[in-house]
Design a binder for these strands. Structure first.
Lengths: 208, 208, 208, 208
DNA sequence: AATGAATGAGCCTTCATTCAT
DNA sequence: GATGAATGAAGGCTCATTCAT
C-alpha cells in the first residue's frame, strides 16, 4: 500500500475507514501540541491529509473529534485506575491507586494525558459535555464503593467523596500538569511522594 | 480619516478619570461570568459604558485589562496568605495557611477567585505572562522560606517545594473550582478538612 | 462558534471557481479608482459580490489581491517592453522601446498602469515585496544586456544602468502619472517626444 | 535654558512658541524616517514632547503639520532653483539648473527632500492641497518664462512645458528617490550626468 | 496656550461550518 | 464517502480628532 503523501498533487483515494483514523491521529498530535482551542480545523486537515468534508462526515467538526479522543483518553485512565485498584493488596495501595494511575498515564502517553487535563474545559462548552459527564459518572461509583467500604471498615477516616477526589486528584493533576509543560525529573519519585501524601491525608489519624 | 460626525445622537462624555474604573468593574463582572475568552471587547464596552478607545488608552486591550485584574487578584491572595502565614502560632497552622487563604478568597470574592483560577492560561499567551510570573516569583520565596525553616527545625518532613505546593494548592484549587461552578455547602467545613489533609500529608513520615 | 443562521435572507451561493475571477475584476476597478490604500476590503466585497471568506481563501487578504494584480500588470508591461525591444531595428528604436512600452500600457489599460505606478509603495510594505522584487529582477537583466551591448559597440554613450533607467523611466513615469490623473491630449505625441528625448539623452554626444 | 526632556515626570511649561517649534522638528524627523502616512500622531507627540492639544492648537492636526513642512520644503527648493537659474551664464547652465537644484536639496537636506518627493500624494488628499498647488503655481511661471525666452531666441528646440518638466524632473526625481532609499555613490557625479542628459534631451533637434 | 482622557468610525482577519459536486 | 470553494459571524485593533479643564 502506498504511503499517503498529503503533498502529492492527486491524493489517492483513501482506503475505507482510513480518513477517520487519519483524523484521530492528527487530532492526538495537534491537540497535545497546541490544545484544542489552539488547534484550528485547518491544522487538523493539513496534518491528516483529510478534507474538511471528511472531518464533518466522521466527527461533525473539531469538537466531535476532540470528544471522541477525550472519551478514548478517559477509557485509558479508567482502565489503568481499575487495574491498580483491583490489584491493590493493602488499603494503602488502594488509596494510592488513582494517584499512581494518573502518573502512569502521564508517563506512558504524555500527549493524551495533557489533552485529558486541558480539554475538559473546552468540551464542557460543547454538545458533548453531557456524554463525557455520563461516562465519568459511570466510573465514579466504582471508586466510591471501594472507599466507602474502607471507611466503613474504619481503615480510612470518615470523609466525603468530594474531599477524597480533591485530595487524590488535586496534587497529581497539578504536578503532572507542570511536568508536562516542562518535563524535569523522572515521574517515578513524584508518583510515590504524592501517592504517599494522599494516603497520609486519607488514612485514620492517630490523634483525631 | 475618522470622525466626521456632527450627526451622532449625543456622545455623553464621561467624567474625567472615570473610565479606567468603569472598565475594571466591568472586567471583574464579565470575566467572572464568562471567563476571559468568553468575554468580548464589546461585552466590556457595553457593560462599562466606555468606548473602545478608552479600553485601549488605559489597558491596551482586553488582555491588558485582564492582566491588571489578575495582578490585583494575586495581590489579594498574597495578602491573605501572608496574613495567615504570619499569624500562624503552630507549625500546623502555618502549613494550613495557604489552604485557608485559598478558601478565604473564594468566600470573600468568588468572582475574583474564579478569575484567578481560570485566567492564567489565557494570560500566559499574552505579553503580560512575564509580569505575572515575576509577581508570582516575588511571593513564592516567602512561602518557601517558611517551609524550609520548618523542615530544618525537623517540624516537617523532608520534602521538595514542588511537592509541597502540589499538596497544598492542588486539592484546594480543585475543590474551590468545583464549588465555584456549583456552590454547594458552605466553604468553612471544606476549608478545615482540606487544611487538615494538607497538614497530615506534609507532617507524616509515611512510615507509620 | 459562528453560523447559526437559519435566518439569513438567501445566501445565493456563487458558481464554483467564479469568485477568484470576480475578486480580481473588482480589484482592478477599485484599485484603479481609489488606489490600494483607498480601497477597503468592504469595497472589494460589495463590488465583487464575494464574501470576506472568499477573499481570504483565494488571496489571503487585500494585499494578496493587490499583489496578484500587480504581478499581472508587470507581466503586461514586460511583454510589451520585450516585444518593443526585440522588434527594434535601429539602436534608436531600442533606446525608445521602454518609453514607448510605458505609453502603450497607459493607452491600452490606463487603470492597470495607474495601479502599477502607484501600488508599489503599498506592496513594498507587505509580505509580497520580495516576490515582486524577484519578478522585477528577472526582467532587468534582459534590458541591461541590450544596453551593455550597445554601449560596447559604441552606439550609446558610456553610462551606468541606474542613469539609463532614470533617463528612460523618469520622464515617462512622470508624464503618464499626470496624464492618468487628468487625461488630456492623446498620448501618441507625448510618447514620441519623450522617446526621442530619451534617445537624445542616451546616444553618443557629438563633443565627447 | 534647561534642556527639554520628554521623559521628565513634570514637563516644565514650555517657552512661548516652543511647542510649535518642537512639533516641526519632530515632524521633520518622523516624516523623513517613516513618511507621513507611516507616522502616527502619537509618534509626533512622543518625539516632540508636546501634547495632542498643542498639535491641534498650532497645526490643526498631522495634515497641517505636514503641509507647513511641505511649504517650507518647497521654499527651500525654489530658492535653490532660482539661485541656479539666475546664476546661469549659458543656456546649458539654465537647462541644467533645476536638475542641479534637485540634487543640491538631496545632498544638503536628504530628509526634507525625501519628504518633498513622497508627501505630495498624501497632502493632495487633504484640505491643504489647494494651498500647495497655489504656491507651486507661483513658481512655475518663473521657470516657464525662462524656457520660453530661450525657445523664442532659438537656443532651445520648440517643446511644450509639460515635456520640459517631465524631462528635467523625471530622471532627477527617480534617481534621488532611489538614492535616498539606499544612498550609494556620492550625488555629485549623478547630478552632472543627469543634468547633461536633460540638456541633451532638450537641445537636440532629434534629426541629427 | 497647553493638556490628555475620551471618543468611535473604520479596517483587517480568523475560523468553524455548509453544501453542491 | 470524499472533496473544497464559498460563506459570514465574531472579534480585535489603530488612530485621528474632540473638548472639558
Amino acid at each position: 500500500m502506498p504511503v499517503k503523501n498529503s503533498k502529492s498533487p492527486r491524493p489517492a483515494r483513501a482506503a475505507h475507514g482510513q480518513r477517520r483514523h487519519d483524523l484521530m491521529k492528527a487530532g492526538r498530535a495537534c491537540f497535545a501540541e497546541s490544545g484544542v482551542e489552539g488547534t484550528t480545523v485547518e491544522d487538523l486537515l493539513s496534518r491528516s491529509g483529510a478534507s474538511i468534508g471528511s472531518l464533518y462526515q466522521h466527527f461533525k467538526g473539531k469538537d466531535g473529534l476532540a470528544a471522541a479522543l477525550y472519551l478514548e483518553g478517559m477509557e485509558m485512565f479508567f482502565a489503568k485506575a481499575r487495574a491498580r485498584l483491583r490489584g491493590a493488596e493493602t488499603t494503602a495501595d488502594g488509596a494510592k491507586a488513582l494517584v499512581r494511575a494518573y502518573f502512569d498515564c502521564a508517563e506512558e502517553d504524555p500527549g493524551a494525558t495533557s489533552f485529558l487535563i486541558k480539554a475538559r474545559e473546552y468540551l464542557d462548552k460543547t454538545r458533548y459535555a453531557a456524554e463525557i459527564e455520563r461516562k465519568n459518572a459511570e466510573f465514579m461509583p466504582e471508586v466510591g464503593a471501594w472507599f466507602r467500604q474502607k471507611i466503613k471498615a474504619r481503615e480510612l477516616r470518615e470523609i466525603a467523596p468530594d474531599y477524597i477526589m480533591a485530595i487524590i486528584e488535586g496534587p497529581a493533576r497539578q504536578y503532572v500538569k507542570r511536568w508536562l509543560a516542562a518535563p524535569g525529573a523522572p515521574l517515578k519519585e513524584a508518583r510515590e511522594v504524592l501517592a504517599q501524601a494522599a494516603w497520609d491525608a486519607l488514612r485514620r489519624s492517630g490523634k483525631e
